[in-house]
Amino acid sequence: MSVLPITANDLPNGLTSVTSGSKSPALASIWAGIVPGIVLVAMITSVAYSARSLSGFALFSPMILAVVAGMIYSNVLGTPAHAKAGIAFSQRRLLRLAIVLLGFQLTLGQVAGIGLSGVGIVAATLGATFLFTVTLGRLIGVDAKLAQLIAAGTSICGASAIVATNIVTDARDEDVTYAVAAITLFGTVAMLGFPLLAPLLGLDQHAFGLWAGASIHEVAQVIGAGFQNGALAGETATIAKLTRVAMLAPMVIALGLMARRGRADASAAKPPMPWFVGAFVGVVALNSLISIPAQVHSAIALAAQVMLTMGLAAMGLQADISQLRSRGLRPLMLALSAFVFIAAFSLTLVELV
């Protein structure tokens, strides 16, 4: 009985390298590309969190500090080629997972807590601000994708909304970085300025909380401004803000439909609803139905923030400062106009209601 020799071609895929005692090409690619990139992103993220302990940096969220740190690193030292795969992984996969985890911060009961009029104010403010920003951007000559990012960041939930919207709009990394920086700037102004305006405007705690939650950009900024005027104001502001976060899903779906309709091959285009949007809605529903321990909630919230920060650090690593300069002042003026509009529009509705 003769035995036929077995060659490498006779082995299943991936086993050739195992028999030879070496790693498979796929595993080697992971270790050579993804891991170094994630390590670099994690280092930038650590710098961002550490910088918050320094005097003058406590007002900024780790996300914006991570963007800045990533930009400084890439534009001064350069981004290593072998780290690009891991940076891309952080920018895409980690960000989408973080957005899903944001759903654990919201329940349907919390939305009901601000009442039908409160939900109406939040929804009307969101829609009007988005349309105003996109329209003004078109009139003053701001790139349509950048205008959409600024509109989403202003009207919904800051950096998180910009990241989620960009998955549909597919803008350049420099546009995302510009939008995050502009939104963070004016959100910080609102966080510091709105509590000072409350006595002048004659707003009680409920009204102020509703105004802050409906108009200030980032969740952390809303909490910071709301609780400066009392516990009731802080709680109302947080619920109103999380209601805006819940509206991230329908907004992304709407933008996806618009993008699909604008393509010549719309019939062959992918479904406009990214997987993470459906997962976000599912997590909100799950969080509304079951009781999750407070410690688990805190751990999930921290994980979501860290992953968002890592994703934005990755964007900073791929941002070119010269490209940012080329955008000029028009996008900044658009972000300022959007900030003024959302503050005035939401305040008007709060006063009327």
Rank of each mutant, 00 (worst) to 15 (best):
L185N: 13
A207D: 09
A198I: 07
V189A: 12
M191N: 07
F194S: 03
G202S: 12
G193F: 01
Q205K: 06
L200M: 14
L200G: 15
V168R: 10
V176T: 13
L203M: 12
G187Q: 06
D173N: 15
I167D: 05
A198K: 09
I167Q: 07
L192T: 02
A182K: 07
L192E: 01
A190T: 02
T188L: 11
M191V: 03
T169N: 10
A171P: 03
V189I: 13
T165D: 00
G187N: 11
L185Q: 14
A171Y: 02
I167C: 00
A190W: 02
F194I: 02
A179W: 00
A171D: 04
L203C: 07
A179G: 08
D170P: 07
F186Q: 08
G202I: 11
A171W: 01
G202Q: 11
L200I: 10
M191W: 01
A171L: 07
L192N: 02
A198M: 14
V176S: 10
V189G: 08
L196D: 08
G193N: 06
D170K: 14
L203D: 04
E174Y: 12
Q205L: 06
T169I: 14
L203R: 04
L197R: 05
P195G: 11
V176Y: 01
A207Y: 01
A182H: 07
D175I: 04
R172H: 13
A182S: 15
D173S: 14
P195S: 11
A190L: 08
T184E: 05
L200N: 07
L192M: 14
T177I: 05
D170T: 07
P199C: 11
D173F: 05
V168M: 07
T188G: 13
A171I: 05
A198L: 08
M191L: 08
L197C: 09
Q205C: 06
A179Y: 00
Q205P: 03
F186R: 06
A171T: 06
V176Q: 07
A190K: 09
M191D: 03
L197Y: 03
N166S: 10
T177P: 12
Q205W: 00
A198V: 12
D204F: 13
T184V: 08
R172C: 03
T165H: 01
T169W: 02
H206A: 15
T169A: 13
V189E: 05
L185H: 11
H206T: 15
P195V: 09
